[in-house]
């Protein structure tokens, strides 16, 4: 690997990492409230397709194209779409106390199915070429700072990304701070650890779960949008986001439920995922085999955490359980 390739490799890794980081930051907030949301892949897909829907309507309107407006519209649609999808999960698991695993899986089926369905309709309306593409919007999302390319290697490695990459890191840092250092974070953690205690302490458990899961869902959804708009340059493709959704869920474990570790973890995952073509001399099939690595690494981390059995590194204690105050 020569220098140029190395830089491209780093750029690619970081680009992909943003999707994973947003996805897993969202899932972390959700899990901190005691909800294991296996619907994350579905939410990411739904968020992404909502953005695409926004893009379709914006570009097919007669208004003059404005990059900023296109970003605002797609982002707004994405937030709305992922929020609505997450609300299905919230209503079922929190209000109706259904099983979280089953609900989450059903939500993934739903979200991925919906995104494929809507995607194919938009594709058809746009002429049925197989891809729904919005190159102008992709360009808007990938706009870098004007002086980024004048700063040599530093600029290439640190400043060559669209705004969402930085947004992802900022969100992760903020979430890490809120969880560890604020009253809200303390309350949130107590809801995930021991909802009965939180309830007795005067915390509205259901409200915390709703808000955390919805905020988490929106952040994950933005992760999906990032992938489509920035990484894939506003090209919609069916069935692409669920694997990144599951990788995001995996990243939560890898980062032992800490968003700041997830920043590094997402870059490692991103690197493992894109490294194939950069390893010269590797055949295509071996590159394919390399894609196993993020999953295997996660499994290893999972097993090690459980073997060491340290109290600080465990999942929230009531993760996956519904809470009912009058349970006897």
């Amino acid at each position: 690997m020569n220098g140029t390739m190395l830089i491209t490799f780093i750029q690619q890794s970081i680009r992909l990492s943003s999707t994973l980081l947003l996805g897993s930051t969202g899932e972390m907030i959700t899990e901190k409230s005691g909800n294991l949301n296996l619907g994350t892949p579905g939410i990411m897909a739904a968020g992404a397709i909502s953005g695409i829907v926004g893009a379709y309507f914006y570009t097919s309107s007669s208004a003059a194209f404005s990059p900023l407006l296109s970003i605002l519209i797609t982002l707004g649609c994405c937030i709305l779409g992922s929020l609505l999808t997450t609300l299905i999960y919230c209503f079922l698991t929190i209000t109706l106390k259904t099983n979280q695993n089953v609900t989450g899986l059903a939500l993934t089926t739903f979200g991925v199915g919906l995104s494929n369905f809507v995607g194919s309709i938009i594709n058809q309306r746009m002429g049925g070429t197989g891809v729904a593409a919005f190159p102008e919007i992709g360009k808007a999302y990938r706009t870098t700072l004007p002086f980024a390319d004048k700063l040599g290697i530093f600029g290439d490695i640190f400043l060559s990304y669209g705004f969402m990459t930085y947004l992802a890191i900022v969100i992760a840092v903020i979430v890490a701070f809120v969880i560890a250092k604020t009253r809200v974070g303390l309350n949130l953690r107590s809801v995930g650890e021991n909802p009965a205690t939180a309830d007795a302490a005067g915390i509205n458990v259901d409200r915390y779960k709703y808000v955390a899961t919805c905020v988490g869902g929106i952040i994950s959804g933005i992760g999906g949008l990032y992938y489509v708009m920035d990484f894939a340059a506003a090209n919609w493709q069916n069935n692409i986001l669920d694997q990144f959704g599951w990788l995001s869920v995996a990243l939560v474990i890898f980062a032992v439920w800490r968003p700041n570790i997830a920043i590094l973890g997402s870059i490692i995952f991103g690197a493992l995922y894109v490294v194939g073509p950069f390893l010269l001399g590797l055949s295509t099939k071996d590159q394919e085999l390399l894609k196993i690595l993020p999953y295997v690494v996660t499994i290893v981390v999972l097993v090690i955490i459980s073997m060491r059995d340290k109290k600080e590194n465990q999942p929230p204690e009531s993760l996956g359980l519904s809470y009912f105050r009058e349970e006897r």
């Binding site: 294991l36 869920v249 995996a250 394919e288 999953y295 097993v303």
Partner: peptide
């Protein structure tokens, strides 16, 4: 070790898919 099986088996799905590819 009481390893979380939900997440473990989930990951195994993708390992299997990659192996098939």
């Amino acid at each position: 070790w009481n390893t979380n099986e939900t997440l473990f088996t989930l990951m195994m799905n993708y390992v299997a898919m990659t192996l098939v590819s």
